[in-house]
Amino acid sequence: MYVTAEPVFSAEPVVEIAHGVVGYADRPVLRDVSLSAAAGEVVAILGANGSGKSTLIRAILGLVPLRGGTVRLFGTPLKRFRQWRRVGYVPQRLGAGSGVPATVGEVVASGRLARRGVLRPPGAADRAAVTAALTAVGLAERAAEPVATLSGGQQQRTLIARALAGEPELLVLDEPTAGVDASSQTAFADALRGFVDTGGTVLLVAHELGPLQPLINRAVVVHDGKIAHDGAAPVPAGHHAAPDHDHVHPHAPEEPPGVCLT
């Protein structure tokens, strides 16, 4: 059982989208959406398949263009934002071993590039950050193994470690536990708890919360491209509330390869 102090949030939002509009061809996806997250806050974005919740965070990160509205990160308009080392992004169901002949440690170490630059060789601080990130997700003993040999859940934990290794201030996660085994979900929740305890801000897309429920300060429900609820996280109902329920049925299309900010 975890007991944490009531979080205190800063006044200036870390993330802010105002009157956001996104559409593909003639099909509207987001309709006049406004959302903000303060420093230290953990915000879950919930909704049914096709509701627009993943499109919302992609718009916030500039991965899909806005047709209307504005986005600000750390108080800076998205078009002028350059400090991507402050942001860690874990995309939806992108396999860490997708044809890449790399070890777990090498994949996680790539999360340091935005912070140290491509040309500078890794130093002691980089190695310490990689070790800490691997430990946080329970993969320290697998660092030298090819990432392609890991299970799907362990590969997802590798991607989360890669984001943590960059020591971001904001973590953006798109359904990180969908299709992931129960032990990996628990390991992920523990890693996220450690990040939040250091003052990190989290924007998390989920179909359901599971082990993450105790960490959530606020839930935003997206329905038909609009914000239908912004407040306390909904209480699980029916079979989703059962203690042995395991949400391991992936249902969303895979993220295009090569989309990552860390």
Rank of each mutant, 00 (worst) to 15 (best):
E141A: 15
V3S: 09
G238I: 01
D230H: 01
V221E: 05
F74P: 08
A140Q: 11
A148Y: 02
H249Q: 13
G199Y: 06
E175M: 07
R120T: 15
L215R: 10
E167F: 00
T262N: 13
R86Y: 07
V33Y: 14
P13V: 08
G166A: 10
A144L: 10
E169M: 01
A237T: 15
L164E: 13
V196P: 07
G138E: 09
G225N: 07
R116M: 06
T201Y: 06
S54N: 08
G95N: 08
F81Y: 15
T103A: 08
E255Y: 08
T55M: 07
G69P: 14
G95V: 02
G75A: 10
F188Q: 13
Q155M: 14
F188P: 03
G20I: 04
T198H: 09
T70W: 03
L203Q: 13
V8Y: 04
P236N: 01
A18P: 10
D26Q: 10
T103S: 14
R67M: 12
R127Q: 09
A37E: 00
D190K: 07
A96F: 06
P168Y: 00
E167L: 05
G199W: 03
Q154K: 02
G117E: 15
G40C: 00
V42S: 07
V180I: 15
D190S: 12
P28N: 01
A59Y: 05
R162W: 03
R82N: 10
D32V: 00
A136F: 11
Q185N: 09
I45R: 01
V137Y: 01
L73I: 04
V8H: 12
T262P: 13
V205H: 02
P234D: 06
G99A: 08
A11T: 11
G153L: 06
L30N: 07
Y89A: 09
D244I: 11
H229G: 00
T149C: 00
L173S: 05
A136S: 11
E106H: 01
L173D: 08
V222E: 05
D174P: 12
A178W: 00
E16V: 03
S151A: 05
I216D: 01
L63F: 09
Q213S: 02
P211Q: 04
V90N: 03
S183T: 13
R142K: 15
E169R: 06
L171A: 02
T158D: 05
Q83P: 04
R218P: 04
G153A: 09
